[in-house]
Design a protein around this nucleic acid. Sequence first.
DNA 1: CCCAAGAGTGAAACACGTTCCTTCGTGAGT
DNA 2: ACTCACGAAGGAACGTGTTTCACTCTTGGG
Lengths: 215, 215
Amino acid sequence: MTSVSTEPRNTDDAASTGAQTSAPTGGSAAQRERRRRILDATISLAAEGGFDAVQMRAVAEQAEVALGTLYRYFPSKIHLLVSALAREFTKDVDRSAIRATPGETAHERIMYVLNRRTRALQKQPKLTEALVRAFMFADQSVTGEIHEVGTSLTTVIARAMHGTPDHGEVTEEEAAIIRIISDVWLSALISWVTGRMDEKDVEKSIDVAVRLLLR
Amino acid sequence: MTSVSTEPRNTDDAASTGAQTSAPTGGSAAQRERRRRILDATISLAAEGGFDAVQMRAVAEQAEVALGTLYRYFPSKIHLLVSALAREFTKDVDRSAIRATPGETAHERIMYVLNRRTRALQKQPKLTEALVRAFMFADQSVTGEIHEVGTSLTTVIARAMHGTPDHGEVTEEEAAIIRIISDVWLSALISWVTGRMDEKDVEKSIDVAVRLLLR
DNA sequence: CCCAAGAGTGAAACACGTTCCTTCGTGAGT
DNA sequence: ACTCACGAAGGAACGTGTTTCACTCTTGGG
C-alpha cells in the first residue's frame, strides 16, 4: 500500500518475461499452476477474514510459494486482490454466455443479472469486502486488471439488455447507460461493504437507476 | 488500516469525554485549536504528497501534537482524512448557499456546480487523491463523517437543480436522481484519481448521466 | 551431460499505521 | 496552596506490506 506511484519492476509488457500480473495464460504449466494456487489462497483467505486477512505471508504460505515468488507474480496486495476479482468475474461472464437471460423487459433482465450477482457477493461478505476495497484502492498500475473487470461487467449487462447471449450492436447511448448502471452498482456495493446500506437498499438503488435510465 | 472491525476505544457518544472524532465543536478552546491544527496539517501534507504523504507521525509533528494525541482525536488515518474532507466540503456548502446558481436549465446548473467542484478538486490532484482514497476505504466506524459529506453534496445538487439557494421540496424522484448523479460523480472521481480517466472524461461522463436522467 | 540464466526460496530489513506505557502539566474542586 | 483526575507528551514496540539479497533449483540449448 505504501509506494503507490513508484513502481519500477515488472514493466508489464506481457512480452517481457512470463507469468506476470496481467498474463493469466502465459508461462509454463508449473507457473500457471502456481498462479492458480496463489489466487485460490487469496480467495480463500479473503472469504474467511476479509481484506485484513489477506496477508501476503499467509497467502504465500497457503499457496506454498515463497514470499518473494508471490511478489514476482503479483507486485502488490492490491494487484493480487484485483486479479482475483478479475478471475471470478470472468468466470461469471463465461457462464452468462451460455443461455439467454430470463425476463420480459430489459429492466427485468438487467435486474435479474445484477441481483443475482449482488446476492452472490452478499453471500460472501468478507470476500466482497476484500475485493471491493482492493478495487477502490487500485491505482494506475492496476488499470489492466480493472479494465478486465469493467469489460466483463459491461458485457453481462449488455447481454441482459438485449436478452440474447450474442453481443450485437451496442449504441453510444446504451453504452452510456450501462456505464451509469455500473457506477451505481459499484457505489451501492461500496456502501454495502462499508455498512452504510443493507441488501435491500442495494437492490432498490439499482432498480431505481435502471428504471430512470431505461424509460 | 489493520484492525477495521475491532475498535474499542472512543465510544463516540459525544457525551463521554470531549473533542472526539465526530465532534468538531465540543471541547475546550485549546482542544478545538489542536483539532484545527491537525486538520490543517493533514490537508497540507495531502496537498503536497497525496495519501501516502499523510503519515501519522508527520501529521503529528506538523500539527505540533504527540502521536498519541493525534490518535486520541482521530482513531485512524482514515478518520483523519475523511474528517478533513468533511470540513472542506462543508465550507463549499456554506458558500453555495449565498447566491443562486447560474444557468438556464437544471442540467446547466447542475453541470455548473459539479464542474466547478470537479475543477477545484483537479487543481489539487494530490489532495483529492488522498481524500478520495480515504473516502473509499472508510468502514462503518466512519459513517458519521461520510454521511456529512454525502449530505452536503446532495444539498448542493438539489439547490442547483432548483436554481435557488433555498432547499424547497425535493421529490422522491429528484432525490433518486441526485443520488445517481452523486454515484456517477464519485465513480468518475475514482477513475480520475486512479488515472483511468482524464479531466474531459470526468466532465463528459457526468454530463451524459445528467442528460439521461433529466430528460 | 554440462552450463548459464532465469525462477524460486528464505530470511532479514525497512516503512509506516497503530498500540501501549510511563511521565508531565494543568485546571477544578477543596 | 494542595491534590487529584485527565489530557498530552514522548517514545518504544508490534504487525504487516514491501524490498533486498544471497543462495539453490530447474530447465533448455550446446
